[in-house]
């Protein structure tokens, strides 16, 4: 199963980026083998609006089934939900630890977005 994690760096030892749409990297990680792809999200970093929607689309396209992040806004949440991607909010610490915690079933999935959009 593929897991997406917002990250401040491009490897598994990096810290989770609490921001979703404007995270530096989006890590797409195979939860079983830990093989990963670090997707550079910097183009989105400067997006005026809709960064969350764009990042959410990217995650859907990469085939991730779960997103681990800090705060996911309402539009991004709606997009992910439509594609059947489950969201875990308030994740912090190292990317690798987040994936391990997820595998050990220590997270609960969000029912709704935990930050308001900003427009």
């Amino acid at each position: 199963m593929k897991v997406a994690v917002t990250s401040k760096g491009s490897d598994l030892e990096s810290q989770v980026d609490p921001r979703f749409g404007r995270a530096k990297y989006i890590m797409i990680i195979d939860a079983d083998t830990l093989a990963f792809e670090a997707v550079d999200n910097s183009e989105n970093l400067n997006a005026f609006k809709g960064a969350g929607i764009q990042a959410a689309t990217l995650i859907c396209d990469k085939g991730a089934e779960v997103l681990l992040t800090g705060h996911c806004g309402p539009n991004a949440f709606t997009t992910l939900k439509a594609a059947g991607v489950k969201v875990v909010n308030d994740v912090d610490g190292m990317v690798l630890d987040a994936v391990t915690s997820f595998k050990n079933g220590r997270y609960t999935f969000a029912e709704e977005a935990n930050v308001d959009g900003h427009w």
């Binding site: 809709g50 929607i53 539009n75 709606t78 997009t79 992910l80 439509a82 594609a83 991607v85």
Partner: peptide, 16 residues
């Protein structure tokens, strides 16, 4: 970004 393709659906965000 007012219209997005998510999985097998197309979403519209009218306010955007």
């Amino acid at each position: 970004r007012a219209i997005a393709v998510a999985g097998k659906t197309v979403l519209v965000f009218p306010e955007l």
